[in-house]
């Protein structure tokens, strides 16, 4: 089937999409957007998190056909200025990355959290990132990065 979708603000059309493939596969293998990572393929790890019509979902569980005529933003599209988004900058500066495989999903989830809640408490951060598993960092640096991003985006602590 043919799938047409808006991805990071641009219209993408892909042909001969197999019905069984996931949105994640279509993004990575057909649209040249390998930021979303393929890990559990069960919706458990969050490495493939993208915005679909404005809300974060696990792209591994979305059939490619279901993305037809919808709006998608991937980690590659978090910033359209050519500079890193403040969330990305904060992860970089805080060293909230080890192997990096979970990072794209965490960036999207953090971006979503801070857009809804600019000053999240630690329990709110933990709950918001519950769907993103990291096997390296122990999460402490990730929490540091989310707090730093909140400060950076707001010009200082509340």
């Amino acid at each position: 089937m043919r799938v047409t979708a808006t991805v990071n603000g641009e219209t993408h059309q892909i042909d001969d999409v197999w019905e069984g493939e996931s949105l994640m596969y279509a993004l990575r293998e057909r649209m040249g957007l390998p930021g979303s990572k393929n890990a559990c393929e069960q919706g458990e790890c969050g490495s493939c998190t993208v915005y679909l019509d404005g809300v974060p979902v696990c792209s591994c569980l979305v059939a490619a056909g279901q993305a037809h005529e919808r709006d998608i933003v991937t980690v590659e599209g978090l910033s359209d200025t050519g500079e890193l988004h403040p969330v990305q900058q904060a992860y970089l500066e805080q060293g909230a990355v080890q192997c990096g495989f979970c990072t794209p999903g965490l960036l999207v989830a953090t971006h979503d959290l801070l857009s809804r809640n600019p000053h999240p408490s630690d329990p709110q951060i933990r709950e918001a990132l519950a769907g993103n598993l990291c096997r390296c960092t122990g999460y402490e640096k990730i929490l540091d990065a989310v707090r730093a991003a909140a400060d950076r985006m707001d010009g200082g602590p509340a």
Binding site: G43, G46, V57, C58, L61, V62, A128, A130, G131
Partner: peptide, 9 residues
């Protein structure tokens, strides 16, 4: 139930 990503979908 579940995670934010799953509740959204």
């Amino acid at each position: 139930g579940a995670s934010g990503q799953l509740r959204n979908a």
